[in-house]
Structures are given as structure tokens and as C-alpha cells.
Amino acid sequence: MLKLLRHLVQGAALLCVLYFSAALMLGVIPVNGTFTQTRGGVPIAVCSNGVHTDFVLPVKSEVVDWSMAFPPQSFPADVARYDHVGIGWGDLAFYQSTPRWSDLDLAITLRAMTGLGPTALHVQYRPGPGSAERCAALTIGAVQYRKLAEYIGATLVPTGAPVAEGYGTSDAFFPARGRFNLFTTCNVWVGEGLKAAGMPTRLWTPFAFQVMPPLEAAAGR
């Protein structure tokens, strides 16, 4: 039994090393590195709390009206005063338990990585990107924004109603498609959305710290 346990521990350690090695290698390969901002386009942002990354988008534009997908009456607070909406994706239980790094729970994280739990879109009506969080703001063309909106819309299960309450009164969790796991994390979902919209990202982005640098570099150009 001790020999078997030792082999299991060694195997798990090897898998962790391989996973993080792959993340580090694939997480530096640029995608859409020639991106340039569109003057007069749609202003969008990606914001990170250190664990999750979210798209921060105007509630209404010529391309899409997010209040149709996420009805304001579905939120406890009067969210009509907000002109932006934050949208992220992930395992529902993991999302609910980890609003910050300090809330990270190993058991919930491991359970989420199995891909057996339901996923959700975390939607928050809010002002634009805040100064107290890490955000990269860019201006993209209407065609790019439409592709991003289509990507997000394809993830949403269009019930029009939340599946769970959020962290406060201006956010909620809406049912989503897809399975969260080691290879498809909340940050991979954001990275794939960036790819779909022709925005700068990395080949594989399982962690928040891999999503932000290409966007911040593009925002400074």
C-alpha cells in the first residue's frame, strides 16, 4: 500500500509539472500580435481580479444590447444606471467560492477541475473599468465586436433568468454551456473570445496573468 501511495503521489506530481510546463510554454506564444486599435470603434476592456478575467463591455451599442440577454429586472438592485456589463465564464461552484485569491479552496478547485459541475456566466452591471482593478481598455471595430458578442452569446443558455445569486445586488450567475476543467478554465474562455475577435492573446491562457500582458501592451500602443 505504501508503494502504491508513493507511486500515486509521484504520478500526481509529474502531472502537475507537465501541466504547468505546458501552460508556461504555450502561454507565451502570441496570437493576433499585429492587432491595432480602431479609431472611433467600440471601447471594451478586460479586467482581472487575480483569479478570474472578465470582459467589460458597454451595455448598449450599435452591435448588441446586453440588457436583452441579461434583463435588468433579474438583478436585486436597480442596474439601469450602469452603462457597462462585466461578463466571465466558469464552474459555478468555483466561481461562487472564489471571488478573490484569498478565498481559494483546494477541495472546490479540485472538484471543479473534474468538469462534472455546471458552468455559468458571471454577469455584473457596473461602471466602466475601475482604477482599483487590473484592466486593459481597447477600442475595436464593429465586426470584431460582433464576433466577440457572438462568441459570448453562443456560451449563454438563453433562459433570461439567473441560475444563482451573485456576490452582491448588481451581479448574478446565468446558465452557460461548456465544461470547466484543467484545460478549459475561465481564463481560457476569455482567451478564446479574444482570438475570435482578432484581439491579442496567447495560444493557451489557463491563468489570469497570461491574459492581461498582451492586452496591456496593445492598449499602450
Rank of each mutant, 00 (worst) to 15 (best):
F174T: 10
C135Y: 04
S21L: 12
G90Q: 02
F207V: 11
A136K: 03
S131M: 09
V28P: 00
G117C: 04
V163W: 00
T155N: 14
W189D: 01
A142Y: 08
L4F: 08
L194G: 13
Y167R: 05
P129F: 02
F207S: 11
A12P: 02
E165Q: 13
G115P: 06
P206M: 03
A12Y: 02
D78A: 14
Y19S: 05
S67C: 08
G11M: 02
V157F: 05
G90F: 00
P127W: 08
S102V: 12
V157I: 15
G141P: 06
A218T: 12
V51M: 11
P158I: 06
V17G: 00
V63Q: 04
L116W: 14
S61D: 04
A13Y: 00
L15K: 02
D65F: 14
L24Y: 09
Y82M: 00
Y95I: 01
N187F: 04
G168D: 11
P200F: 12
F20D: 00
W101A: 13
P129A: 01
P175A: 06
M1D: 11
A69T: 11
P129I: 02
V9Q: 13
C47L: 08
A196R: 13
A23G: 13
G86Q: 06
M1A: 12
V17L: 10
W189E: 00
P214N: 11
M113G: 05
A12W: 05
L2I: 13
Y82A: 00
K60E: 12
N181C: 07
C47I: 04
F75N: 07
G40M: 10
F207C: 12
V28Q: 08
G41F: 05
L104F: 14
V31K: 14
A197P: 07
L15F: 05
Y95T: 03
A69D: 13
E165H: 11
R179V: 10
N32W: 11
E150V: 15
P175W: 05
G117D: 09
V163Q: 10
A164Q: 03
G117E: 13
M113N: 06
A176V: 09
V28S: 10
G41S: 12
S48A: 12
S48F: 04
F174A: 09
E216G: 06
T185F: 03
P118S: 11
L5V: 11
K3S: 13
T159V: 11
F75E: 04
G40V: 07
R111S: 13
R221H: 13
